[in-house]
Amino acid sequence: MAVITREDIIKPENLVYKRTSLLVDCALSYCPGCGHGTAHRMLMEVIEEMGIQSKTIGVAPVGCSVLAYEFLDIDVQQAAHGRAPALATAIKRLMPEKYVFTYQGDGDLAAIGTAETIHACNRGENFVIIFINNGIYGMTGGQMAPTTLPHMRASTCPYGRDTETMGNPLKITELVATLPGTCYVTRQAVHTPGNVRKTKKALRKAFEYSYAKKGVSLVEIVSNCNSGWKMTPVQSNKWMEENMFPYYPLGDIKVPAAE
């Protein structure tokens, strides 16, 4: 009786999944277990499947993903902290036939770039915002972010976020969903296979809606920061489910009227 060996299976014709070639073939600069890498991969899979590599301009932020342009095999501009939506506004207005997206973290999008975020959303610019929310400033060493949870510890709130003096976490995604200029606002995650697949679907919809001139699509991805949270990657994903998701529930917040 024939036995199917590992070698029999590992053949090009049997390939069912590999890292997309639109992710540059190099090691990512992110910490082990960080959701950025998965978010990058889903983004590039969508660009690959839509066949829009030559028509896509990305904008990288300041923060952990400042080096995103090193990993994404498309034309990318690196923005000053928080200014990505301003860059994207100009790119999309000057080249309306292009697909334009920004990739921003919580400090970038919801603190220093709040004005740029809200006004780009309010003007109904036709680009996609990918918002990675891990409730902390990862790159600079784990400081409090606008999205840090109440009582959550960070290096600038070592005794936990005191909402009396530091305010409450900003739900900017819900906030921009109230603006007529946004067409599709959703909150996703990338820590389980099911969530990753949903995120990919959301990203594809976001690109399609904004290209169809419906306005800004914002895909928030609630993610982990195991280094900043001082946990193992697996622990951080569990902590995220137990603590982040109740405050930042997953799912669509706004979908285009036609749906």
Binding site: Q77, R83, L87, T89, A90, I91, E116
Partner: peptide, 26 residues
């Protein structure tokens, strides 16, 4: 030619940055 009243001077110059990065006269 695109003409846009930005939300701030900070946004306006960064729009110039975005447009100039595309090889446009901004």
């Amino acid at each position: 030619m695109v003409v846009l009243q930005a939300e701030s001077e900070v946004a306006a110059i960064n729009m110039v940055y975005g447009g100039a990065s595309c090889g446009k006269k901004c």
